[in-house]
Structure formats: C-alpha cells, structure tokens
C-alpha cells in the first residue's frame, strides 16, 4: 500500500525550485507496553502536581518558566512562544554540498523519502547527480512550526532527506575528556588488530534480523493462557581476563580454527 505524504515542500537549489513530497521512511515496530496500577491492572493516569506539596495543578493553570538560578524562573507566556515560532514556509533550502560521510553518524535522526511532486525528470536528475558526485546536500527548512536541519542524499536512485540533530543535542567524546588509565601495550594492540581483521566483513543490513520480539510475544501469550513458561537464569557478569595477552591469543586461535572449518565445509 502506498504511503501518504506527510508534508509538501520545494527543494531550493539556487534559483531552481523542485517541488517534492515527504514520506516517512521508517516502519514503526516493537512491542508496546503499558504502565498499569499493580492492584487493579488498570492503566495509570498522569497529572501535574506541585513538586513540594503534591497538590494537583489543573492544566489551564500551568505556566512555563526558564530557570535562571535554582528555583527562580523567568515566566514565558504562550503568546510570546507563538511569536517565536518560525514563519511557515515550504522551501527546503539547500545551502551547500559535502562529500558523503562528512557529517558524523551521531547527528542523523529521522529519515524521510522525497518523492517528485510534478517535475519527475528533474527529481531523478538530481538523485543521479548527487549519487554520481557522492555528495550530500545540507538542508534547512521549517516544518510544522519547527526549524529543521537535514542531509539530502541519494539512495538507489531516489532522494532522501534525513533530519539531523542540532549541534547542541549531540555530546562528543571530547567534551568528556579521556578515560582514566594507561595507554595499552603495543603488542596487545597489534594482536587485537589481527583479531579485527579476521572478523572483518562488509555491512549488509539484511544479515541482521531479530527474533527477540517474537520470543517475548510467545511468552506473553503462554502466560495469558495461564501457563508458566520456564525462564533461563541470568549469567554472572563475565570476568575481565587476567592476562589480556593470553585472552587475545586464545581468541585468535579459536577464530582461525572456525575460519578453517568454514573453508573446509
């Protein structure tokens, strides 16, 4: 079944405007659990209470504030917030292009497909040009009263727009500083690199599937029928190896044995 477009906009590349439709590229999955009251097995309700007295505060009396120092707030009114909302617009402004992979993966948030809204020839021309040049566009736009940044990329001959997290929302290792402890032994690193090279391969997303969800569902269904399926015991935390060298060389031996077996089979 064809998906419905969630938004319409227009890619702006200089003076060229390319009308596009936006479609979600993600299939919602996963089991949904509900929070229940233990005694009644009924769904719990939520409300807002005064944090110090516990008294309920009705929705219409709630105000918003920015904490400037502990327990001191600057009040911000709804109409002021509305005035701050970006002007509605349909332009997805492409401000420049970067070599693929230049934006760190930790910034990537939600992927969308773009589909042509009229001019299909130009749409497929842009997808091909981006793919040929191995570049991605940097985009900024306003959608549903929010400011967005994103990466415009080509995938299998189609255009995708992936929203990016703002710089303020991504924590980097640099901000944490280095972990305590000494640099590892050069010989150990060499052996570890060997181990990595034995286990090296290409990333194929199709190779990874998961049966955990089905397992959980099966267990829940059995419980619903009044059965008590057996559960495994949780393992103890694996101990750290006493000697890294010994653990590494044993690992290398075991993987190379497996590789040999594979070659024979």
């Amino acid at each position: 079944m064809a998906a419905r477009a969630i938004w319409k906009g227009s890619l702006g590349l200089g003076r060229t405007k390319l009308p596009v439709k936006l479609y979600s590229a993600v299939e919602g999955r996963g089991l949904h659990f509900h929070l229940l009251e233990k005694k009644t097995h009924k769904r719990v309700k939520q409300h807002m209470v005064d944090a110090s007295t516990g008294d309920e505060v009705p929705r219409e009396e709630i105000r918003k504030g920015y904490e400037i120092e502990p327990d001191t707030f600057v009040l911000v009114e709804e109409d002021e917030l509305e005035k701050l909302e970006p002007e509605p617009a349909t332009d997805i402004e492409i401000t420049g292009f970067l070599p693929e992979g230049r934006i760190g993966e930790q910034y990537f948030d939600v992927p969308y497909y773009l589909g042509p809204d009229g001019d299909a020839k130009s749409y497929f021309a842009l997808a091909e040009a981006l793919g040929n040049k191995r570049r991605e566009g940097f985009a900024r736009w306003v959608m549903r009263k929010k400011d967005y940044i994103g990466a415009l990329c080509a995938r299998d001959g189609y255009l995708m727009l992936i929203t990016l997290r703002f710089a303020e929302e991504v924590l980097t290792a640099r901000q944490l500083g280095p972990p305590p402890g000494k640099a590892p032994d050069a010989r150990e690193v060499k052996m570890a690199q060997q181990l990595v090279s034995v286990l090296e391969g290409e990333f194929r997303a199709e190779d990874y599937t998961d049966e955990y969800e089905e397992k959980v569902l099966k267990y829940i269904k059995a419980k619903a029928k009044g059965r008590k399926p057996k559960l495994a015991v949780l393992p103890k935390r694996r101990p750290e190896p006493k000697s890294l060298m010994a653990a590494l060389s044993a690992s290398l031996k075991s993987v190379s044995k497996k590789e040999k077996e594979k070659a024979v089979a």
Binding site: R43, V44, K45, Q46, V49
Partner: peptide
Amino acid sequence: LARKYYSE
C-alpha cells in the same frame, strides 16, 4: 511542577 502517575 512534577509529573505524577495516579490511580483512576
């Protein structure tokens, strides 16, 4: 304010 769960 704090968000709290309550029993219906």
